[in-house]
Design a protein around this nucleic acid. Sequence first.
DNA 1: AATTATATTGAACACCGTTCAATAATAGGC
DNA 2: GCCTATTATTGAACGGTGTTCAATATAATT
Lengths: 203, 203
Amino acid sequence: MGRRKDHSPEELRLLILGATRNIIENKGLDALTARRLGQKIGYSPGTLYNLYPNLDALILAANFDTLGRLQQFCLAQLKDKANGFSQVRALAYAYLEFAENNINCWTALFAYKSKHVGKKKLPIWYRKRLDSVFDLIEQVLQKNLDIPSGEAKATGRMLWACLHGITTLALDSRLKSIGLDNPHEMIDSLLKKCLSSYLSAPP
Amino acid sequence: MGRRKDHSPEELRLLILGATRNIIENKGLDALTARRLGQKIGYSPGTLYNLYPNLDALILAANFDTLGRLQQFCLAQLKDKANGFSQVRALAYAYLEFAENNINCWTALFAYKSKHVGKKKLPIWYRKRLDSVFDLIEQVLQKNLDIPSGEAKATGRMLWACLHGITTLALDSRLKSIGLDNPHEMIDSLLKKCLSSYLSAPP
DNA sequence: AATTATATTGAACACCGTTCAATAATAGGC
DNA sequence: GCCTATTATTGAACGGTGTTCAATATAATT
């Protein structure tokens, strides 16, 4: 036991975070344990607690990362789409696609491992990023539709919540065959019905 | 140790299930442990495993119960409402209200404690009840709106998924102050936009 | 009364998150 | 080069978890 100095503190932080993301992505949040994490990076479990106060903080950091990747992915999917309604639909599809392609990471965003974290408030830096993700749809609505600026935020938040519900149920494998598959259809239906009044030309 | 016969097997099953529901309702799913459960009913932890194969089965049984109560509550909330759009809105509000008033039970419906349950299929008797809950909105739509019978199911499932998303995010205390409160407003907006074309008289 | 059947137990196993005194290796002063 | 102070790292320990199962005590049967 003792100072090895294989890595600087910052390097070690990143090493731990990387391993955390890796485990969550490949094995799921439930597979994330201090001992497994330590083994993966070649340190003892105790070392984690020198860099992070507890596993929840680590999960939060990984989720922060996931949020960033989600945002980037959504933005990227908009680039080559025609303006107007197509942009809105592309954004919704992007959200769903990201969730489908990153099930474990996406699930971890909303699954809370610990008892007490549910009551704790999210730190500011996390809330900010979350906010910017939610703002995405609002901006896309405003840029691509004839929507009153006063309605954009509320409508955007509402649509995002609906999209979240559709995605959640679609990803729950146990709910297949209860007519909750086909999320793309649901999204199409939702967007057309909710946004038809804001379209300059009917779809 | 030995046969006490304080309770018949069926009584014991109910005793255990009752304690399970009690713990989930009052302390949350995370507080449900075999040892606490045993203590609560005056039996050893091992006794549970004579009646149920594991805690997951117990959680499933409790969830089955919750589903039934959810359904009953929704139905009851429809009784004294005027026909037409009011019925649909009442149903949506009922779902939200049940979730709000039974946070721990409702959360348990969608939070999976164990690693492997996510992959297992739900038993038939559970799927049936789940189905009948999802069918609720479809029936209410068909009885109260001018909706083509071919569209009722898909629209109903879609609305239910959206409602679920709104409820999920609204109940997440950590997401307050990101504009995801006010679920009633969201529900109103969703229903009006999605159902306006099916209304005989405009709202 | 002896035997069979069954209900109940609790110690045991392999995990978990977290803590912290002990320790080993480095950095700095002389 | 030596000594000391600092710091990074450890791993055993604590109190928990779900689950199993040989042992046992009671009831039912013969």
